[in-house]
């Protein structure tokens, strides 16, 4: 399977470990990722808050770049970029006036015909293939995992079309595939507060705090995410959350690619497990999981 890869801005910096683990895992399970050359920012939340045409044109520009590549479509690791790329396709395919305007901005028509998936989708295809289990170097049995989907992967469903908007299971299937135990919990699609981290941090501390507390109360050892922005709020800001709530949480937050990588025997360094604020290695070892090279 060969896919054009749109990393997005955060994977080059704050979510470096998501990029590293994505590349390592894709290679190990046979997904060929070719980065879109000279891709630009998707505009994220600020673009749609500022100007609708800008918010469609930026992703459409990237999709036009991807169209020239010989791949089966674009795959995205960040839920926010994923949502913006899908929204651009949705806008130009459902609204001829918007398509005409975007065409003028880009200097060429974009039909909205480049398929966009979130990385969880091609990974989901591979883990359900018969014999996948034999590729695992270890089973992560005993590790309890709360899969956190957040907002933009699943909402709005008419744009993302991803899994079930209220009760998604795609990440839980990754958890099951590596022999770990998915926990049932209430906050899997609640909002972490997103970009309010910059503008109203106390809202993020409350919302992300509720998510982490519910994960803990549901017996989870770790929280699993598929979005660098969710990760930043839940991991990087966890100390602020603890102060705000007046509690100790210490819940490691991993990317689903890192969990998969651990089972595939990829080293700690390649997966970037040492880059989190809350160190996941002690609980992983406590559950009998081999973590190489940390």
């Amino acid at each position: 399977m060969k896919l054009a890869f749109y990393p997005g801005c955060t994977l080059e910096s704050t979510a470096r470990e998501y990029l590293d683990s994505t590349i390592a895992v894709a290679k190990a399970i046979g997904i060929e990722l070719e980065e879109i050359p000279d891709w630009i920012c998707c505009g994220s939340t600020p673009a749609h808050m500022a100007d609708e045409l800008l918010s469609i044109s930026l992703p459409a520009y990237n999709l036009q770049l991807a169209r020239r590549m010989d791949t089966e479509g674009v795959t995205v690791a960040c839920a926010s970029c994923y949502s913006r790329l899908r929204a651009a396709n949705h806008a130009v395919t459902t609204d001829p006036e918007k398509r005409a305007k975007v065409g003028k901005v880009l200097g060429g028509d974009y039909e909205g015909d480049v398929p966009v998936s979130h990385l969880l989708e091609p990974v989901g295809e591979i883990i359900k293939q018969p014999g996948f289990e034999s590729r695992l170097k270890q089973k992560l049995s005993g590790l309890k995992v709360a899969s956190y989907y957040g907002c933009l992967l699943v909402r709005p469903p008419e744009i993302t079309g991803f899994d079930d908007a209220e009760d998604p299971r795609s990440m839980d299937r990754v958890v099951e595939a590596v022999g770990a135990e998915p926990v049932d919990w209430r906050f899997k699609v609640e909002c972490c507060g997103a970009a309010l981290a910059f503008t109203r941090p106390e809202i993020v501390e409350k919302l992300s705090g509720q998510i982490l507390e519910d994960a803990r109360d549901s017996g989870a050892d770790i929280v699993l995410v598929a979005c660098p922005l969710c990760h930043s709020n839940l991991d990087l800001r966890q100390c602020d959350i603890e102060k705000f709530l007046g509690v100790d949480l210490e819940i490691p937050v991993l990317y689903f690619t890192q969990l998969l990588g651990l089972a595939l025997g990829i080293s700690c360094k390649e997966l970037g497990l040492h880059k989190h604020t809350i160190n996941p290695v002690p609980i992983l070892r406590k559950r009998g999981i081999t973590v190489k090279g940390c």
Partner: peptide
């Protein structure tokens, strides 16, 4: 802070093409 967040983000993006977080 919200419109400041939005305009700072957009001008960063216009200048560099990608967000330079620092």
């Amino acid at each position: 802070e919200v419109p400041l967040f939005v305009s700072t983000f957009i001008s960063n993006l216009k200048r560099f093409g990608r967000l330079w977080e620092a």
